[in-house]
Write a protein that binds this DNA or RNA. Sequence first.
DNA 1: CTGTATCCGTGGTGATACTG
DNA 2: CAGTATCACCACGGATACAG
Lengths: 142, 142
Amino acid sequence: MEMIDPDLQEGTGTSAGNTGVTAAIEAIGACPAVTDMMSRVGDKWSMQVVTKLGEQPRRFNELRRAVDGISQRMLTRTLRNLERDGLVSRKVTPSVPPRVDYALTPLGHSLWEPVTMLSRWVIDNRIEIESARAEYDAREQV
Amino acid sequence: MEMIDPDLQEGTGTSAGNTGVTAAIEAIGACPAVTDMMSRVGDKWSMQVVTKLGEQPRRFNELRRAVDGISQRMLTRTLRNLERDGLVSRKVTPSVPPRVDYALTPLGHSLWEPVTMLSRWVIDNRIEIESARAEYDAREQV
DNA sequence: CTGTATCCGTGGTGATACTG
DNA sequence: CAGTATCACCACGGATACAG
């Protein structure tokens, strides 16, 4: 997915899918919004940023130091996307030097919970996953 | 508060005195396995395939028809990845023509639940997300 | 301090053709 | 039927320099 980058062309607006209030599982793939958000959750930095902002609001460079390894460019892009999705708020204080405070919105906080469930699952099953991979690799190496 | 594996806090002891939930959240980024699986969840086809296999086991082309828009190549690749992670089982029947049955493993089924939570969150909040985007785009269009 | 602009490598994804 | 092989596109992400 990924949108709004000066380097790229204008992002395609997500069209409204059907009104399925059916089982959420069935909506994966049926509802564009689901796949769309999944890719946001799956991208490299978004959930790490959400995590750090979930602890407390932070300024730009504060956040940059908190999220290990993120570049300035990617932090900006990630924050813009999160802001666009309504997950993060951005408050500019036009001082010298400038000050910009980021925080999770209520919507952003609410995303916390299902994402936590997912990361819990990974943690609880990471051994099984890794051994499955090792087994597969050993099998295919032949 | 729930318990969590002690070795999750290794390396970056960001903040002590966390609950299990926040510890799990913090493990995003701290634990490579979490970021790794997130990208699997976030990729374009994996969860759609898991969804379809969650309904029932399927053969290759059956699955291909079930997952709208997926190419043969991507279905193969997606299935291989899922198989490697231990989420999907692959049973070959060497007949003519050949028959290959795919199904979710117990591990794959267990992933269902947190993923469902997440997709339900998206569905419940997709209106708010879309209006946030519309608002942002209108603001930035200037 | 908080960004933009520019360049570029890598990898995910798709189209098409071929194979056992 | 169930794949592989090959080619190509372009978005993601990183490095660096510049700007307000």
